[in-house]
Each structure stands twice: as structure tokens, then as C-alpha cells.
């Protein structure tokens, strides 16, 4: 009995080479190419190789319901106000609120953070950027990140952390805005959400991922009348 002593540090390499050689040695060139192609396709799958290419955004019209992920969203209007209940801007700034009716059309509750992901802050209308911890926003350079909206239930001024299925809320999506803004419309985008049933890459099964802009349009801005937005605090 002879012993194949595997005493080198290249043991793993030798085993791997043997396994590859065992399969590849007896293949024709065409077979090898085929195996390579199949392997490459499998390897690309977790990175969204088969996701459909993103279509152009559809127009966002106020008063018309659109579906984004589990939510049916009807954008009603935008409004600016000096303060909205407990939300008080820095001196010289104002609050911008987008009013929308939202229904969770799914079977399970959704977090309002997920809803916030669907409505990024409008660009180019002076939304006060997020202040990164420790350093002033000016030093980051380039385009600063705009904050997620603060979502407030208009009927009672409360914030709802979860949205139960089948219940419709009239919500205000609120950002702090520079007082210089005096436009008549704000450009608004709604982002589509995709459901990840089985997450091959991140082991985080069953969550919504933030996709691409699905709807975009200009929303007219009015002046918030007293007591309309979260004014019941």
C-alpha cells in the first residue's frame, strides 16, 4: 500500500485542480465553452442580471392613484408653511409638505419608513440637506444627500410607524426648505419598490428594495391654510 502523502501547503490547490481536471479533461472544447457560459450565467444571477431593464417614468398626475410597491399613492398637492405643529424650521426656512392619500394594498403591515423610500425629496427646490454627523454639510462637496420625509398623519398630527393593510391615510410628507423658494410647482418623483422573496446575496429574505423612479411630475404648491396640516397638535 502506497500512501499519497499530501504534505504540501498546496493541498487545497491540488485537490481543486484534480476536481477541475477530472471533469474538464474528458470534455471537448465545445463542452468546455458551454460549461463556462452556464457557470457565468449562474454567477450573474444574484446581481440582477435577469431584472427587466428599467422603463421610462410615467407621468405623475395629482389626484390620480398610482401603485408603488405595496402602496397606492394619490398625490393631492404640495404646500409650504412656516411651521407644521411640532415641526419648526430654522429661522428663514419653511416647511414643504406634499399631501397624499396612501393605502397599503398588501396583506401585511408595512413600515412608514418603506413608504418614505418611495418619495425622495424634490431636487432643485432648496430642500435643506441632511447634515452628516460631525461635519457641516458644506464640506462634503458635490451633491448633498437630501433627507427622507417626515411623514405625519394629517387627521391627528400623529406619526404612524406602521401602515396596516386596507386602511387609507391622508399623509403629509414634510421636508425643511429654504425660505427663498417661491416656485409654483415642485418636481416630484415616486420610486418603485420591488419585493425580494429570497435574497441570495444578503441573506435578508422578504424585504422591499428601492428601485428606480417610476412616476415623475410637477406638483402645484399652495399656501397651507391654518389647521390643514398637522395643525391639531
Amino acid at each position: 500500500m502506497k500512501h499519497a502523502r499530501s504534505d504540501g501547503p498546496d493541498l487545497a490547490f491540488r485537490i481543486g485542480r484534480r476536481v477541475v481536471a477530472a471533469v474538464a479533461d474528458d470534455m471537448s472544447t465545445a463542452q468546455r465553452v458551454g460549461v463556462g457560459v452556464v457557470g457565468a450565467l449562474v454567477a450573474l444571477t444574484p446581481f440582477g442580471a435577469w431584472s427587466p431593464a428599467q422603463a421610462q417614468t410615467a407621468p405623475l398626475v395629482t389626484g390620480t392613484a398610482v401603485e408603488v410597491g405595496p402602496f397606492e399613492v394619490t398625490v393631492e398637492k404640495a404646500a409650504v408653511a412656516d411651521d407644521l405643529g411640532l415641526l419648526v424650521p430654522e429661522p428663514g426656512n419653511q416647511m414643504l409638505a406634499v399631501v397624499a392619500s396612501v393605502t397599503n394594498t398588501g396583506e401585511v403591515p408595512e413600515y412608514s419608513v418603506t413608504l418614505g423610500d418611495t418619495m425622495p425629496a424634490p431636487r432643485g427646490v432648496g430642500i435643506v440637506p441632511e447634515e452628516p454627523f460631525g461635519e457641516p454639510a458644506a464640506e462634503t462637496g458635490g451633491e448633498a444627500d437630501l433627507p427622507s420625509p417626515t411623514i405625519v398623519n394629517i387627521a391627528d398630527g400623529t406619526s404612524r410607524s406602521i401602515l396596516n393593510p386596507g386602511v387609507t391615510y391622508r399623509l403629509a410628507f414634510i421636508w425643511e426648505q429654504s425660505g427663498d423658494f417661491a416656485g409654483e410647482t415642485v418636481p416630484l418623483e415616486l420610486i418603485d419598490l420591488g419585493w425580494v422573496e429570497e435574497d441570495l446575496a444578503g441573506l435578508d429574505d422578504g424585504h422591499w428594495y428601492v428601485g428606480e423612479a417610476a412616476f415623475s411630475g410637477d406638483v402645484p404648491v399652495g399656501q397651507a391654510g391654518p389647521g390643514t396640516e398637522a395643525g391639531q397638535q
Binding site: 398623519n153 387627521a155 391627528d156 398630527g157 400623529t158 396596516n164 386596507g166 386602511v167 387609507t168 391615510y169 391639531q232
Partner: peptide, 8 residues
């Protein structure tokens, strides 16, 4: 501290 109105 707060009053809440139901959506449903």
C-alpha cells in the same frame, strides 16, 4: 399626551 384618529 396625544389624541389619535383612526384611518379605519
Amino acid at each position: 399626551t396625544e389624541t389619535a384618529v383612526a384611518g379605519g
